[in-house]
Amino acid sequence: MPITEIVFYVFSLVMVSAGVAVITVRNPVYSALFLVLAFFSSAAIWLLLEAEFLAIVLILVYVGAVMVLFLFVVMMLDINLTPLKEGFIRYLPVGIVVAVLMAAELLLVIWSKGSFDQGAFPIPPPNPVGFSNTKALGELLFTNYLLAFEAAGVILLVAIIAAIALTLRKRVGEKRQNPAMQVRVQRDERVRLVKMDPEPRQGN
């Protein structure tokens, strides 16, 4: 068995078990950390596919930014686990529908190829020496898929503005500081030197 195959199976095993752990573990912080582990393993599998740009960006964006904020929120919330457990039966039908749909979609892809052997899904040929994944991806994004790429950018921008607009509210009685004013402050505005004669001695 070549070493790449061993690596593939090890990381797949870790990824699948981490994925199962995400939904079975009781502690939500552990759940989030298992999701991080799953992301890591899938990044490693992408590296095996020579998709180093996607692998590193997965870690950079999902592990480095999204999951950090997730963890942040999960740690701050004092989640009571019992009501979460009660919802299990209630949401089970919806969950089953989603699971069946996803499985059906996967099966559809396999079915369209006829079978699940290596013949239907051949290993992609290795990239030539000096091939830059990043450059190839960039060229595709900014030529063939420019419109889709720009549209995605605009949608994200709208999402950012919407999120800010939804959470921004005027609060009464809040105190604000103007940093420009604070920086510009002069000594004379804050300190007053008073000339004082020494007091005459008290007592004896």
Partner: peptide, 11 residues
């Protein structure tokens, strides 16, 4: 992708 790798590690 050395620079991206560095960014990923620091994050």
């Amino acid at each position: 992708a050395g620079l991206l790798y560095l960014l990923a590690m620091s994050s």
